[in-house]
Simulated scan of single mutants.
Amino acid sequence: MEKWEYLSTKFQAEGSFGGILDVENFDLELNSLGNQGWELVSIVSTNAAYGKTREIIAVLKRKK
């Protein structure tokens, strides 16, 4: 049976209306984790008031 380990990492959304993600930083971090063997499984956004994105949570996995 395969065994996995999981990692959750947060990315802050900036801006006063709607929450803006720094896509360049996001891509750099995901590519860095991918080079370490992590595979992206899911992305979830957390919301503040009125649906504004507060942070993005990325869940990754890799074989143990």
Rank of each mutant, 00 (worst) to 15 (best):
T53N: 15
D22V: 08
V44D: 14
G51H: 02
E2L: 11
A13W: 06
E2H: 10
V23L: 07
S45V: 13
E24Y: 09
D27K: 15
N47K: 14
V44M: 14
I57C: 03
T46I: 06
G18C: 01
K63D: 04
K63V: 10
G19N: 01
K3F: 13
G37Q: 00
G19W: 00
N35P: 03
L40E: 07
K64C: 09
N35I: 05
L7N: 07
N25E: 15
E2A: 11
D22N: 14
G37D: 03
L30S: 01
T9C: 12
F17P: 04
L30T: 00
E24T: 09
R54T: 11
E5W: 03
D27M: 13
V41C: 07
L21P: 02
L40M: 06
G19V: 00
S8C: 07
E2M: 13
T46D: 03
G37A: 02
N35Y: 03
N31V: 03
Q12A: 12
Y6D: 04
E55F: 11
I56R: 01
E14F: 09
Q36S: 07
N47I: 13
L28R: 15
N35F: 07
K3R: 14
Q12I: 13
L7M: 12
K64E: 10
L7S: 09
T53D: 12
I20F: 09
E55V: 12
F11M: 06
G34E: 06
M1A: 10
G37W: 01
S42Y: 08
R54W: 11
F26C: 10
S16V: 08
K63F: 09
A58C: 15
V44E: 15
E5G: 02
R62A: 01
L40I: 03
G51C: 01
V44G: 14
E29I: 15
Q12L: 11
Y50P: 06
G18Q: 02
E24W: 07
G51P: 00
S32Q: 14
E39H: 03
G19H: 01
E24G: 08
G18L: 00
E29Y: 07
V23N: 03
L33Q: 02
G34P: 01
T46R: 04
Q12K: 13
G19A: 01
K63Y: 08
K63T: 08
Q36E: 14
Q12C: 10
A49I: 11
M1Q: 09
S45R: 07
G34S: 06
R62K: 05
S45E: 13
Q36P: 02
